[in-house]
Design a protein around this nucleic acid. Structure first.
Lengths: 344, 344
DNA sequence: TTGTAAGCGTTATCAT
DNA sequence: ATGATAACGCTTACAA
């Protein structure tokens, strides 16, 4: 106790007049313990302010209490929402969250990740999209023996390793709404090729138009990178069309902001001259002018559930072993001011 | 080696025909080692794919390799920038970043933080504003024996425990620019009372006006919470003034977005009818319409430097022991399209 | 230059 | 119901 100032299990044992193991039993809530001894030990613990050393615990238990968040630097708000969800899940447990951005696109991404996982020997990792869509990453985790849960726009894995949102259906609903408003020339700003979310959202878009019997010329689809600037560029291409679209569905909010930016630049007023719908419902959506109609993506709940899925049955609060964490999350349309009937 | 699949220092020692300690010396780059032995051990390490167990290391060394980021849930982009800066700093070291949001304002905040620090026994923590401005937090870290570096808008602590930006001066420059453009009725949207950043920025604002001999009636100052909505509300109050201000300096970008939102709502065009300057230079600033003139706050560099300050001399890469990390960072005015001369 | 023994603070095994 | 002893994987004395 003198060296570091922190009391150890030995101090507690000595003062309480019991063995280390008994203290250990108290800490770990072993059921086979005399109430008297438990009480006595707990008193000493409280009085000493003893806190078990997590490193020693990790060593003895041959596992640690770190769960990783692996992401590929997407939108800041999205990452924060995920972090918040994870943190809610590990609230009042002994787990902590360590964050690891990786450079997707880098050829060494997989090696970097392996290096990280092997070094840190994490309890498990949460994989954010689009990293999570990469099956090699999941395989890697399996090979290393690291638990994982993937977040994504479709069920890419077993329920215990996946939380997904129904992007396709949600987008279909959003585009249905545009059609109800009377729009017939509707442009799509798709997400980047190779992203499952981009694919699902695009499929939802196409389904809505097909169901309404509206033809979809290739020219009405522009691809972006999920970034603001790419939304601008894509919008410019779509708005150059003659006749131009009266509405645009953008596969995320950030690009939708770019669309509105581009519209403003050419003197178009939203929603009078152009209706816009985004996807994500990041705070920016409510704050831009006009407030953006968008699809709310329950990413924080997904992250929370993903983390719970990983630690359930292990965490301190094992009350909820019975409750199965859901694997599917529903996105909903948030109607704000960026959609109006076409005026022509 | 059989139990977990991961080879241990014992496996390496046995196969290389040396003692554990020798392997340990190789890992820790001890200088007093025969080149032959080192080579031999390194070969075995490579061949086995041996990676030292960080938990065991942490236990033996009586310190771990986790550095914490403590923040009070400010703007998402700001947190992400800080995370990025920290992660750059611990790149290629054995440190990892664990993130800890706290509920500032909660009366138990200090206790929560103490609990966290004592439990995890972190190597050190980075304190983001406005948490970092709280001297009790710094005292707490000292008492617990946890290293810390505070980030803030003024030198609140010793250089080794602080990285600061020159907010006051930067705001003065920004407001000087408005004055140069011909503005005389300039409103201030201040940050929340009790925030040092709010105070510094306000002082910079006041200095600029005083230097130019422009009177500053109380009515020209509105206080916000650094949130979008509060910026809107504050702007509405200022724009109700008769005569109304021709320019507004907002103490951060998020509130500036609210100002522009409010201006749009009442049919005012920015910058023709109202010039606006923000603070932070978050991505939203460049993306809103019109692109926002703002003060760039080098928060990522500050975070990077703060983390380096903490681990320097400890990290793997001890090349840069000599290089002193700076404690003061300069903010600069970024001129975009939200400022124009007044038209009246 | 290398090895031996003892510890770091916890849990697991197997007694009693 | 409790305790002695041996792990866990590494580092720091202190020898040799």
């Amino acid at each position: 106790m003198e060296k570091t100032g922190q009391p150890t299990i030995n101090d507690v044992a000595r003062i309480a007049g019991v063995s280390k193991k008994t203290v250990s039993r108290v800490i770990n809530r072993s059921p086979l313990l005399n109430d008297d001894t438990r009480k006595r030990v707990e008193d000493v613990i409280g009085q000493l302010g003893y806190i078990p050393n997590p490193q020693a615990r990790a060593l003895a238990l041959r596992r640690n209490f770190l769960i990783g968040l692996v992401h590929g630097n997407p939108n800041a708000q999205t990452v924060m929402n995920v972090q918040q969800g994870m943190l809610e899940a590990i609230q009042d447990t002994e787990f902590e969250m360590v964050v690891r951005p990786v450079d997707r696109g880098s050829p060494t991404m997989l090696d970097d990740l392996r290096h990280f996982l092997e070094r840190q020997r994490l309890f498990g990792v949460l994989l954010m999209p689009p990293i999570s869509e990469n099956d090699s990453v999941a395989k890697l985790c399996d090979a290393i023996g690291c638990r994982y849960v993937r977040m994504g726009s479709a069920m890419l894995d077993r329920p215990e390793n996946m939380v997904a949102s129904n992007d396709r259906e949600a987008v279909r609903t959003a585009v249905d709404y545009l059609i109800e408003q009377g729009h017939r020339r509707i442009g799509l700003i798709a997400g980047p090729h190779g992203f499952r979310s981009a694919q699902e959202r695009r499929l939802g878009f196409e389904e809505a138009l097909r169901n309404a019997g509206i033809p979809l010329p290739r020219s009405m689809i522009a691809e972006g990178t999920y970034r603001f600037e790419s939304g601008m560029v894509a919008a410019e291409r779509l708005l150059d069309l003659v006749p131009r679209p009266t509405a645009i569905f953008s596969s995320n909010d950030e690009m939708a902001a770019g669309v509105i930016h581009a519209a403003h630049q050419r003197g178009l007023e939203v929603p009078r001259d152009l209706s816009v719908i985004g996807f994500d419902d990041t705070p920016i959506a409510a704050h831009m002018w006009p407030p953006l109609t968008t699809v709310r993506w329950p990413i924080a709940s997904m992250a929370r559930s993903a983390a719970l899925k990983m630690i359930t049955g292990i965490a301190d609060n094992d009350d909820n072993d019975a409750v199965q964490e859901p694997s599917m999350f529903l996105s909903t349309l948030i109607r704000r001011a960026s959609v109006a009937p076409p005026t022509e």
